Deep mutational scan, measured.
Amino acid sequence: CHSECLGNCSQPDDPTKCVACRNFYLDGRCVETCPPPYYHFQDWRCVNFSFCQDLHHKCKNSRRQGCHQYVIHNNKCIPECPSGYTMNSSNLLCTPCLGPCPKVCHLLEGEKTIDSVTSAQELRGCTVINGSLIINIRGGNNLAAELEANLGLIEEISGYLKIRRSYALVSLSFFRKLRLIRGETLEIGNYSFYALDNQNLRQLWDWSKHNLTITQGKLFFHYNPKLCLSEIHKMEEVSGTKGRQERNDIALKTNGDQASCENELLKFSYIRTSFDKILLRWEPYWPPDFRDLLGFMLFYKEAPYQNVTEFDGQDACGSNSWTVVDIDPPLRSNDPKSQNHPGWLMRGLKPWTQYAIFVKTLVTFSDERRTYGAKSDIIYVQTDATNPSVPLDPISVSNSSSQIILKWKPPSDPNGNITHYLVFWERQAEDSELFELDYCLKGLKLPSRTWSPPFESEDSQKHNQSEYEDSAGECCSCPKTDSQILKELEESSFRKTFEDYLHNVVFVPRKT
C-alpha cells in the first residue's frame, strides 16, 4: 500500500485506493498535508475557505447554543480562536489581540433580562453583547459592586439597553466600559436606550469621564423622579442622539420631579488639616426662599486615587461607600458681607490618608415646582503625618564578641513616609551569675543571650482551647457569634421535631 494509506488498500502504491488515510483526505486521495488554498479540518480532512465560511455563517444565523462559528488559524479551520487571539470578521482569520481579548457573548432569543446578581454573573467577562440587555433589578445585597464585577467589562451592545423598574439602582456607572450601543435591534418605538419607572436612579454616568455613542435609535425617559433633566440632556449631547427624540420621548413632568437638581456650584473657602482632623468651610448658599434650606450634607471617604465619582458603590438597598454628615444651616444675616460661612470639623480620621470630599445642599421643593440647590466639586484632601507606631517583631542576635545583629519589621501604621529608623542602645553591667558559677561542674549549661522565638506554653494553649472559665478566673470563653447562636437554635429545633416524629412513629394507638 501507499505510504499515506492506513489499515489496508485495494490497489498497491495508489493513494486513492486506501481504506483510511494516515494524515489527511483531499478529493478522494490521501495526502501528507493540505496544500494551499485548503485548510486542515478536524485533523483528517482538507477543506477550502468557502466550506469553513459556510459553517461560520450557519452557526451565526441559527443562534443555536453550542454550535461553533468556525475560524481560520495556522492553516486550520477550527471552532474558535485560541487564547490571546480574536477573529477578523472580513476573512475569519485569528489575529493577536492588542491588550485583553474581546469576548463576544451571543444571547438566546436576542435579549437577556438581568433581574438578579445570579443572572448578571452569566455575563461575567463579556466585552461584546450580541443582542439586547434588559435591566430589571428590584433589590439585593452589595448590588453596585456585584454588577460592576460582572457587567463592568461590557464595551458594546449590538441591540438596545433597557432599564425598567430597577428600584435598587442609583447610577449606571457599573457599566464602566460601555462605549457603544449599535441599535441594530430596537425596542418598540425605535428606541435604543429605554429608561422607565426607576424610582431611585439619580445618575446615568459621570459624563466628564465617560463617552457613549448610540449609532441608531432614540432615547426614552419616563417616570424617573430623581433623575434630573440636565442629566438626560447631557446624554443626548454626548451620545449623538440630540435631535432624534420626539416631543413625548422625554417626559418633562415625570423626570426629576422629586430630585434636588443642583444648578449652582458650592466653593470651599477654608481648608485646614491635622493628622486626624480636617476643618472645612464653604461659601454660604440661600435659595430664593431661605426657609427652603434644610441644611447641608457632607460626604467623605478614603480615596487612594483621584478618580472618585459621587455615586460609586451606591445602591438604593443601603450600600453606600460614603460617610454622610448632616449639618444645620448657619444663622442668616441681613448683611451679605457678614454672612457666616458654614463648615464642619471632621474628626477621627487616619493620618497621612487622602480623602475625597464634597458637600451639597438639602432643600425642600418650592411652590413653583422649581428645584434649587448647590453642590461642590469633589475635592481631595490629605491629612498630615504623625509619629508612626512601633516597629514590629524586633530580633537581636550576637554573632561574635563585638557585634549584635538587630532586625525588625516595619510598623503596622507608618502614618507617613518613613525615611529612617533611630536605634538606641545602652551598655549593661555583666551578670554576677557568670562569676559565681563553678565551671568545672559536669552538665553545666552556660547562660545564653542568643534570641529564641517566643512560644506559647501548654497552660496558655489549654486556656485558649477551654470553653469555660478556669477556677483562677484568668480566662473566659469568647462570646458566641450570631451565626453560632442561630445554628444552635436550628439544631435544637431539629432535635425537638425529630423526637416528636419518633414518638408518633414508635407509639401507635392500640386498636379498641
Rank of each mutant, 00 (worst) to 15 (best):
V104Y: 08
V104K: 04
C105L: 01
H106M: 11
L107P: 09
E109R: 15
T113N: 06
I114T: 01
D115Y: 05
D115G: 14
D115C: 02
D115W: 02
S116N: 04
T118K: 03
T118S: 07
S119V: 05
Q121Y: 01
Q121E: 05
C126L: 00
C126V: 01
T127M: 15
V128W: 15
I129W: 04
N130A: 03
N130T: 15
N130L: 09
G131I: 00
S132D: 10
L133S: 00
I134L: 09
I135Q: 00
R138A: 12
G139A: 07
N141R: 11
N142V: 08
A144W: 14
E146V: 06
E146W: 13
E146L: 06
L147D: 00
L147F: 10
L147E: 00
E148V: 09
A149I: 15
A149D: 06
L151I: 10
I154N: 01
I154L: 12
I154T: 05
E156P: 00
S158A: 12
S158N: 06
G159T: 01
Y160E: 02
A168G: 02
L169H: 03
F174K: 00
F174A: 11
F174M: 06
F175R: 00
R176W: 02
K177V: 09
I181G: 00
L186V: 02
I188K: 11
G189Q: 01
G189T: 15
N190L: 09
Y191R: 05
S192Y: 01
S192T: 01
Y194K: 09
A195T: 05
L196C: 04
N198R: 00
N198L: 04
N198I: 01
Q199P: 09
N200Y: 08
L201G: 00
W207M: 06
W207G: 05
W207H: 06
N211T: 13
N211E: 08
L212E: 00
L212P: 02
T213Q: 14
T215N: 13
Q216E: 03
G217W: 00
G217M: 01
L219G: 03
F221I: 14
F221N: 01
Y223R: 12
P225R: 04
K226E: 04
K226A: 09
C228M: 04
C228V: 02
C228T: 09
C228F: 03
L229G: 02
E231T: 15
E231D: 07
H233I: 12
K234W: 09
S239M: 14
G240T: 03
T241W: 09
R244Q: 14
Q245P: 12
R247K: 10
N248K: 09
L252K: 06
L252A: 08
G256P: 03
D257H: 13
C261N: 01
C261R: 02
E262G: 05
N263Y: 12
N263V: 06
E264A: 09
L265V: 13
L266D: 00
F268K: 00
F268V: 06
S269A: 08
T273L: 04
S274F: 14
K277C: 14
K277R: 11
I278Q: 00
L279Q: 04
W282T: 04
W282Y: 01
E283P: 08
E283V: 08
W286M: 04
W286F: 13
P287N: 02
P287L: 09
P287M: 05
P288K: 04
D289A: 12
D289F: 01
F290T: 04
L293W: 12
L293D: 05
L294C: 06
F296N: 01
L298F: 13
F299T: 12
Y300S: 10
Y300G: 01
Y300I: 08
K301L: 04
E302Q: 15
A303P: 01
A303F: 08
N307T: 04
E310T: 02
G313L: 04
Q314Y: 02
Q314H: 15
C317I: 07
G318S: 15
G318Q: 04
N320M: 12
N320C: 05
S321L: 07
S321Q: 09
S321Y: 15
W322Q: 02
V324S: 03
V325M: 10
V325F: 07
I327K: 02
P330V: 09
N334R: 14
N334K: 14
P336M: 03
K337D: 03
K337N: 15
K337F: 11
H341K: 10
H341N: 11
H341T: 09
H341V: 08
P342E: 07
P342M: 09
G343F: 04
G343V: 04
W344N: 12
M346N: 01
R347N: 08
L349T: 04
L349M: 09
K350N: 07
I357N: 00
I357P: 01
F358D: 01
K360S: 11
T364N: 01
F365V: 07
R369N: 14
K375Y: 06
S376G: 02
I378S: 01
I379S: 03
V381F: 02
V381Q: 05
Q382C: 02
T383A: 01
A385F: 07
S389P: 03
P391H: 01
P391I: 04
L392R: 12
D393C: 14
P394R: 13
P394C: 11
S398I: 09
N399I: 04
S400C: 12
S400H: 11
S400N: 13
S401K: 12
S401G: 12
S401T: 08
S402H: 08
S402N: 15
Q403I: 02
I405S: 04
W408I: 12
